[in-house]
Amino acid sequence: MPDHDSKHPTDSPTPLIELVDVYKAFKTQVVLNGVNLSIPEGQTVVIIGASGVGKSVLIKHIVGLLQPDKGEIVFRGQRIDQISTAALAKLRRRFGYLFQLSALFDSMTAGENVGFPIRQDGSKTRDQIDRIVAKKLRLVGLDGIQSKMPSELSGGQKKRVALARAIALDPEVILYDEPTTGLDPVRADVINELILRLKKTLHVTSIVVTHDLSTVFKVADRVLMLMSGDFIFDGTPDELRNSDEPRVQRFISGHASDEDILELDGAA
């Protein structure tokens, strides 16, 4: 495999994305408590963690949708958290972001949604845009649904249209917030393959937030597990499988701890 060395996170000298001591709280609820993360170019990082622990919050910081209370977010040596609005807007076009709940524009058709970032770029003709839209929709297995409105699509279809939109501009970095949630296992595997293919053909750097272990073991170069505001695991999928950290083990095997079950008893 040509990208073999990206399996070792510490090998690459200049990270593409770097989070330094990022701290974020909503009112009194601390979500990120001094997170450090450095991602080299071309790496596929998968972030796992319990629901509500702050995975979405974390990746929103990377594209500047949320500002850290403290700490630095760096992309190619540039401070994302201090950059001007205009520069940030330009920079964001090099990112693709798949929202957890798709966030399709419900006043536009599926095709217009996928074409939106291309139209905003303003450098392509209508025909070219239509061709790119068809190509991207074909990648997610949905060519031909261009004229449907988002309200006419199923949850999984919306997700895939949103994915097509996220990759419409051939971004350098793609952030996937739960790309396979709500898809059947076969379709989920196609999306996993797509993530792998984008990495191979376009050499994109990816950050994937997921609960889906098949995604973890199929696409990850490196897995991170977030808990109580910080990473409690950072390593390869193999290391994850063999980890003897009990919280990691519980997550992989999908067994609730005794405390979790006790909580259930208390509530009932």
Binding site: K60, V63, L65, T85, A89, K90, L91, R92, R93, F95, Y97, F99, L101, A103, L104, F105, D106, F116, P117, Q120
Partner: peptide
């Protein structure tokens, strides 16, 4: 408001559109 709560405003921002 609906666009905000369904993150469509964030989607616009992420695509570099104000």
């Amino acid at each position: 408001g609906t666009m905000r709560v369904t993150e469509q405003l964030d989607a616009l921002r992420v695509m570099g559109t104000d």
